[in-house]
């Protein structure tokens, strides 16, 4: 089995700050992590390899510093890592990103046929959940999104059965390999990387591919030029016309304040009082 896992390096959201004057994101000094959702994808791929043998390749499109995310993935146990980096990739939206990544995956498939491509449910910075389906379409992979678990995998028959989260329940789907799976959060938890793994990963080779290396001929479909969506403006939300009406409870203990708070709420909206009385 050859599994390819798409991972993205993202800023650690908890620590990101916005410049109060220019409204731009201050990335300097913000630590980066592997997109947390992608770790579920990576762990699932590693489990497939542990059960059936084969290799796990990790691939990312990003700036040269994204190599750190790949090394982390190698420490968790990935066998091979590819960094797709090129100035013409900058500014890619999801359509352009899936275009670039699908070329990288095709190049990997030329070395060893790919059985499953894994992606995270979404990224914490782009947050679109579109790149996975985009890759599946471009490579004609059977698309399985929001997968909670792989129920059965039969590499000999090229068959897979998964549980896919749907509205109000779970779909049990059977399809053929090759397929693309986006894993749902909480479906597994990433294994522990030992000191030894980390030393091994630090010395491992990370393959770097430019657009040309990946066989991308049509450069107009990458980066800003290949992105149909454009960001027209970035702005801070306006406060509501009036600020919250502060309910004055000065000098009151919680027990005396609570009825005042309730009175204020019920006075604000008569329908609310009816609703509570009815409920």
């Amino acid at each position: 089995m050859h599994c390819v896992v798409c991972i993205k390096q993202v800023p650690d959201s908890a620590q990101i700050r916005v410049h109060p004057v220019t409204n731009t994101i201050m990335r300097q000094g913000v630590p980066t992590i592997i997109n947390p959702y992608d770790l579920y994808a990576l762990e699932e791929a590693l489990r497939v390899r542990d059960a059936f043998g084969g290799t796990v390749s990790v691939i990312t499109m990003g700036p040269p510093m994204a190599e750190a995310a790949l090394r982390k993935a190698l420490a968790f146990g990935a066998d091979r890592a590819v960094l797709m980096t090129d100035r013409i990739f900058a500014g890619s939206d999801t359509l352009a990103t899936s275009y670039v990544l699908s070329h990288g995956i095709m190049r990997l498939a030329a070395e060893a046929p790919v059985d499953i491509v894994f992606a995270g449910k979404q990224t914490i910075d782009g947050d679109t959940a579109q790149v996975g389906p985009g890759i599946a379409r471009r490579l004609n992979l059977n698309q399985l999104t929001y997968v909670e678990k792989i129920d059965r995998l039969d590499p000999a028959a090229d068959e897979i059965v998964v549980h896919r989260r749907a509205e109000g329940g779970v779909h049990v789907l059977k399809t053929e390999l090759p397929c693309l799976i986006t894993m749902l959060e909480g479906s597994n938890s990433i294994r522990f990387a030992s000191m030894d793994d980390m030393f091994r990963a630090a010395r491992a080779e990370v393959t770097v591919w430019s657009a040309a290396d990946a066989g991308i001929e049509d450069q107009t479909r990458c980066g800003l030029r290949g992105s149909p969506t454009v960001v027209r403006k970035v702005f801070a939300p306006k406060p509501r016309q009036e600020k919250a009406k502060l309910i004055d409870t000065a000098g009151l203990g919680a027990a005396e304040a609570a009825p005042k708070v309730i009175d204020a709420l019920l006075a604000a909206d008569s329908k609310l009082a009816d609703h509570l009385a009815a409920g």
């Binding site: 800023p11 910075d125 403006k233």
Partner: peptide, 10 residues
């Protein structure tokens, strides 16, 4: 991304 901004996309 960033926690306090909106963007308009076309």
């Amino acid at each position: 991304f960033g926690g306090s901004l909106l963007c308009t996309i076309q």
